[in-house]
Deep mutational scan, measured.
Amino acid sequence: KFNKELSVAGREIVTLPNLNDPQKKAFIFSLWDDPSQSANLLAEAKKLNDAQAPK
């Protein structure tokens, strides 16, 4: 279960257009550290992506 959630969340995070590479890497490392938090980490990444969207 975690492997699928981890890969789905990881793929989504790397495609978020408004995150820079260090931010993406930080989220990916957090996913590896605790795969059970993949849904929460993906939600946080999406929030940050939205907040950094060009206005």
Rank of each mutant, 00 (worst) to 15 (best):
Pro54Arg: 07
Glu12Met: 12
Leu41Ser: 01
Ala39His: 09
Ala9Leu: 12
Ala53Arg: 09
Ala26Lys: 11
Asp34Pro: 02
Ala51Trp: 06
Glu5Val: 11
Lys4Trp: 13
Leu16Phe: 05
Leu42Ile: 09
Val8Ser: 13
Leu6Pro: 04
Ala53Trp: 05
Gln23Phe: 03
Gln37Phe: 04
Leu42Asn: 02
Gln37Gly: 05
Asp34Leu: 02
Arg11Phe: 12
Ser36Asp: 07
Asp33Met: 14
Leu31Trp: 02
Ala51Gln: 11
Glu5Arg: 09
Arg11Tyr: 13
Lys24Asp: 01
Ala9Thr: 11
Leu42Glu: 03
Lys25Asp: 09
Ala26Glu: 07
Asp50Asn: 07
Asn49Trp: 03
Leu41Gln: 02
Leu42Arg: 03
Val14Met: 15
Asn20Ala: 09
Pro17Trp: 03
Phe2Gly: 08
Ala43Pro: 00
Asp34Tyr: 05
Glu44Arg: 08
Asp34Cys: 13
Glu12Trp: 13
Lys1Arg: 13
Gln52Glu: 04
Lys1His: 11
Asn49Asp: 04
Ser38His: 12
Phe2Cys: 15
Asp34Asn: 11
Ala43Asp: 07
Ser7Leu: 15
Lys24Cys: 10
Lys4Met: 11
Ala45His: 01
Ser38Met: 15
Leu16Gly: 00
Ala51Phe: 09
Val14Asp: 09
Phe2Ser: 09
Pro22Asn: 15
Ile28Met: 07
Asn49Leu: 01
Leu19Phe: 00
Lys1Cys: 15
Asp21Thr: 10
Asp33Leu: 15
Thr15Pro: 00
Ile28His: 01
Phe27Asn: 00
Glu12Cys: 12
Lys25Arg: 12
Gln23Met: 04
Asp33Asn: 13
Gln37Asn: 12
Glu44Leu: 12
Gln37His: 05
Ala26Tyr: 14
Ile13Leu: 05
Asp34Ala: 05
Arg11Ile: 10
Ser36Tyr: 07
Lys47Pro: 00
Pro17Cys: 12
Asn3Asp: 14
Ser30Gln: 14
Gln37Ile: 05
Pro17Phe: 03
Ser30Glu: 06
Asp33Gln: 14
Pro17His: 05
Val8Arg: 13
Leu41His: 03
Glu44Val: 08
Leu16Ser: 02
Pro17Leu: 06
Pro54Asp: 08
Ser7Val: 14
Ser30Lys: 14
Gln52His: 04
Asn49Thr: 03
Leu48Cys: 06
Ala26Met: 11
Ile28Ala: 01
Asn40Ile: 11
Asn40Ala: 13
Asn18Met: 02
Lys55Asn: 11
Ser36Ala: 08
Leu6Asp: 04
Ser38Asn: 05
Trp32Tyr: 12
Lys55Gln: 11
Gln37Asp: 06
Ala51His: 07
Ala9Cys: 08
Ala45Glu: 00
Asp34His: 06
Asp33Thr: 13
Ala26Ile: 08
Pro22Ser: 15
Ser38Gly: 12
Asn20Gln: 06
Ser38Gln: 07
Ala26Asn: 06
Ile28Tyr: 03
Ile13Gly: 00
Asn49Lys: 01
Phe29Thr: 08
Trp32Met: 10
Leu48Tyr: 03
Phe2Glu: 10
Gln52Val: 03
Lys46Arg: 13
Glu44Asp: 06
Val8Cys: 12
Ala53Lys: 09
Asn20Phe: 07
Ser30Val: 06
Lys4Pro: 12
Phe27Glu: 01
Glu5Met: 12
Phe2Val: 11
Pro54Ala: 07
Pro54Cys: 13
Ile13Glu: 02
Glu44Thr: 07
Asp34Thr: 07
Asp50Cys: 09
Ala45Thr: 01
Lys1Leu: 12
Asp33Ile: 13
Ser38Leu: 14
Ile28Gln: 02
Lys1Ala: 13
Gly10Asn: 06
Gly10Cys: 15
Ala9Pro: 02
Gln23Gly: 02
Thr15His: 11
Leu42Gln: 03
Leu48Gln: 04
Lys55Thr: 10
Gly10Trp: 15
Asp21Trp: 15
Trp32Asn: 05
Ala53Val: 06
Lys4Ala: 13
Gln52Asn: 05
Lys47Arg: 12
Thr15Trp: 11
Glu44Cys: 14
Ala39Gln: 10
Pro54Asn: 09
Lys46Leu: 08
Asn49Phe: 02
Lys46Ser: 04
Asp50Leu: 09
Asp21Ile: 11
Ala53Pro: 04
Ala45Pro: 02
Pro35Lys: 02
Lys46Phe: 05
Ile13Val: 03
Ala53Cys: 06
Ala51Met: 13
Asn3Lys: 07
Leu6Cys: 15
Gln23Ala: 01
Asn18Arg: 01
Leu19Gly: 00
Val14Gly: 06
Ser38Phe: 14
Lys55Glu: 10
Ala9Arg: 05
Lys47Asp: 06
Ala45Val: 00
Ala9Gly: 03
Leu19Val: 01
Gln37Trp: 04
Asp50Ile: 09
Glu44Met: 12
Lys47Gln: 08
Ser36Phe: 06
Ser36Ile: 04
Phe2His: 09
Asn3Leu: 14
Asn18Tyr: 15
Leu31Cys: 06
Val8Thr: 11
Asn40Cys: 13
Asn18Ile: 01
Glu5Asp: 10
Pro17Ala: 09
Lys24Met: 03
Asp34Gly: 02
Glu5Cys: 14
Glu44Tyr: 10
Asp21Gly: 13
Pro22Arg: 14
Asp21Asn: 08
Leu41Asp: 00
Gly10Val: 15
Asn49Gln: 00
Leu42Phe: 03
Trp32Phe: 10
Lys1Asp: 10
Phe27Lys: 00
Gln37Met: 07
Leu6Arg: 05
Val14Ile: 14
Glu44His: 05
Pro54Met: 09
Gln52Gly: 04
Asn18Pro: 00
Ser30Trp: 14
Ser38Ile: 15
Glu44Asn: 05
Pro54Gln: 10
Glu12Ala: 10
Lys1Phe: 13
Leu41Ile: 14
Asp34Ser: 05
Gln23Leu: 03
Leu48Asn: 02
Pro35Arg: 00
Glu12Ser: 05
Leu48Thr: 04
Asp21Arg: 07
Ala9Lys: 05
Val14Ala: 11
Ser38Pro: 02
Pro35His: 02
Phe29Val: 06
Ala43Ser: 07
Asn18Val: 01
Gln23Asn: 01
Pro22His: 15
